[in-house]
Simulated assay, not measured.
Amino acid sequence: MNAITETQAGTDRKALLAAAVTVVLWASAFVAIRSAVEHYTPGALALGRLLAGSITLGAILLVRREGWPARAAWPGIVTSGVLWFGVYMVALNWGEQEVDAGTAAMVVNVGPVLIALLSGWILKEGFPRKLLLGMAVSFSGAALVGVSMSDGGRSSVLGVILCVVAAASWAAAVLAQKPALKHASALQVTAFGCMIGTVACLPFSGQLITGIAHAPLSSTLNLVYLGVFPTALAFTTWAYALARTTAGKMGATTYVVPALVVLMAWLVLGEVPGWLTFAGGALCLVGVAISRARQRSMN
């Protein structure tokens, strides 16, 4: 039993490390998007990001010679590719043009709640008490961060709807992705999902060409960064961790993102957060710690 326990602990540590890489890079994406979205339309930004991600992931696939995923993995890959790499990215980019960052953060953070509820029901992961408690605490923290960053409630109805669409697309994509990881590697699921998302966003090609022609170099470099790191690398580490834990726990882990965004905006953009933002970020971290806590055996 000791050898089995040690092996499981090692797997848990690797999954937690992969999840940590994911949330740090996803948080950095908010800072990069802030520059790029000023000069690229939502669809063009999504397409450019996905092109950079697809090229990076395609090169890694060739080097590793992983080839094509098994047939059984394709339904999940196609669904997650269209919903997460396609619909989610366009809807979120567009939504953040319509509402303030705080409102967007609050609405999009419905996603982990949907993931936990749907995975408990559809994937039969159940509803662990610590997971539900941790998510409640983290959601409260995300709401505090959102309120502290909001513009006083002057939000566009369209923007809120788009953020809800992004959250729902994210949740549905994770549920489709989880079974696919039983039949394909994290790299395969991510790479081919990203390529499918790229194809779905090809109607925005004209906007992307126009954006590249007129955008400053800094915005284009941010677009490339978004594709290589928060997309290619972070989505792969997400898939790796998701294959080794429950969808509910992975969704809850992403509540760290708002806290990290606040810290990065402070360090990189000089945006000093208020005490309410600090309190919300702390609650996010506490909630994630509770949700990730391992259940002790009663034997």
Rank of each mutant, 00 (worst) to 15 (best):
G270T: 11
K14F: 12
M250T: 13
L25C: 15
A136R: 07
S150Y: 08
K249C: 09
T210E: 10
I209C: 01
K249W: 06
G153A: 05
K130C: 07
S169Y: 10
L283E: 12
S155W: 03
W170H: 03
A105E: 07
G193P: 08
S119H: 04
N109G: 06
I122K: 13
V164S: 06
L16P: 07
T5L: 09
V256S: 13
L133T: 15
G211L: 03
V189D: 06
V63S: 05
S35C: 13
V199R: 01
A172T: 12
V165D: 03
G58Y: 12
M135S: 10
V157F: 14
A73F: 08
G67D: 07
G141H: 01
A3M: 04
G53C: 06
P112W: 04
H39E: 14
R296W: 07
P112E: 13
S185R: 11
G251T: 07
V199A: 05
E96P: 01
T210N: 05
A59V: 15
I209H: 02
L158V: 14
S218R: 08
F235K: 00
W26H: 13
N109S: 11
S169V: 09
M106W: 08
G146V: 08
V147A: 12
L208A: 02
G53I: 06
A213I: 03
N2Q: 12
S219A: 14
N109Q: 12
E38H: 15
G211T: 04
S156M: 09
A213M: 05
G141W: 00
V189W: 05
A180Y: 05
V145K: 11
T190N: 08
E38D: 15
A247M: 05
I196G: 03
A91Q: 03
T56L: 09
A136I: 10
A101Q: 15
T198L: 09
T277Q: 15
M106H: 06
R65L: 01
S156R: 10
D100N: 14
Q207E: 13
G81I: 02
A184Q: 03
R64E: 13
A184V: 07
W121C: 10
L283Q: 12
L51D: 02
L57V: 08
C163K: 09
P112D: 12
A293C: 07
L45I: 09
V145Y: 04
F192V: 02
W238A: 00
A72I: 10
I161R: 07
I77C: 10
I55W: 01
F139K: 10
A46N: 11
R129L: 15
K178L: 01
L50A: 13
I290H: 11
G126F: 02
V164I: 14
P42C: 07
A44Q: 05
M1K: 09
W238K: 00
L25H: 13
A171G: 04
G280A: 10
L17E: 08
R49Q: 12
G76T: 03
G86C: 05
E125V: 10
